[in-house]
């Protein structure tokens, strides 16, 4: 599978032992320090988050997260289970609204506008910020209907022909067109897991969003399907801003340019992926990427 792209900025994470690299560095931040280290600020951010907290009832899921997300980049969110990375991701298109008892505070600015502000319509926000879920969730409709769903509810096409074009374009972009072009009328649920996930990506990009959020998009897929999705993510980076939550550190290393490490509800460290995986600034980050916990 040499088609896995993006080898240029990936350090050979597992050939040199990271702990050796880090061991003799005295400037590593100690485990007790819970404030964010690294570069949270970027030039010309698409999304800037300031002091974001998420509560489920009384229980805080993430605390005081400040992070900026750059345009046309892939940012990976890593961290052990329950660290709040998915909760954070779901803030970005206000999917947490659908969970009763979930409360979000803080500022999230998208191109300078607060998405939790009064005048914001979640319908339009979610048209701009698409989302792909952990488990492929195509609607039990035909492949065509699945992709056409978003454009239809947002009125992006006047005629059936325009809609056909959007469907075709999205499926081509998601790398699924050649596999399904002869059976667009068949149910999307009949595809294989990897195809379903690419269908969900096609469905998300059919609305022409600016940001795509992916919540562990490959964790239900086999390695070959995973490789295809990773390749796709790297291609999509040229047109979209992409946030990926992942459990796999190798995946984060392969597909992302920046990486954010969450631990128990705190954003511990943010930085260039290369730097996070070779010279982490925080002791917890080092522990995690060297496999000492999580």
């Amino acid at each position: 599978m040499d088609s896995i792209v993006n080898p240029t900025n990936i350090p050979a994470v597992h050939t040199t032992s990271i702990s050796d690299v880090v061991k003799d560095r005295s400037d590593v931040v100690s485990r007790e320090n819970r404030s964010t280290v690294g570069e949270t600020i970027v030039e010309d951010p698409r999304i800037s988050c300031l002091d974001v907290n998420v509560y489920y009832g009384e229980k805080p899921a993430i605390r005081q997260v400040g992070l900026e997300i750059a345009r046309n980049q892939v940012i990976a969110m890593i961290g052990p289970s329950g660290c709040g990375k998915s909760s954070f991701l779901r803030c970005l298109n206000r999917m947490n609204d659908t969970i009763p008892a979930c409360q979000v505070t803080g500022k999230i600015l998208m191109d300078g506008q607060d998405i939790n502000g009064k005048g914001i319509d979640t319908v339009l926000l979610r048209a701009e910020v698409g989302m792909v879920f952990q488990k492929p969730n195509p609607f039990p409709k035909s492949i065509w209907e699945n992709v056409a769903f978003g454009p239809r509810i947002h009125g992006l096409a006047q005629t059936k022909k325009e809609l056909d074009e959007i469907v075709e374009k999205s499926l081509i972009q998601a790398g699924l067109w050649d596999e399904v072009k002869d059976r667009l009328n068949q149910p999307g649920t009949g595809l294989s897991g990897g195809q379903q996930q690419r269908l969900c990506i096609a469905r998300a990009i059919a609305v022409n969003p600016e940001v795509i959020l992916m919540d562990e998009p490959c964790s239900a897929l086999d390695p070959i399907a995973t490789a295809k999705i990773e390749e796709l993510i790297d291609k999509l980076r040229l047109d979209y801003t992409i946030c990926v939550v992942t459990h796999s550190m190798q995946q984060a290393a392969r597909i992302s340019q920046r990486t954010a490490f969450f631990h128990l509800g705190d954003l511990i460290e943010v930085g260039e992926t290369k730097q996070i995986f070779t010279k982490p600034l925080h002791h917890l980050t080092e522990d995690y990427i060297t496999g000492r916990f999580g």
Partner: peptide, 23 residues
Amino acid sequence: SLRDGAYALGATRSETVRRVIIP
């Protein structure tokens, strides 16, 4: 997950009911 899928595409509640859940 089907509801999430529809909401994430920007469907309103009644659109989700009408176009995804009822079918």
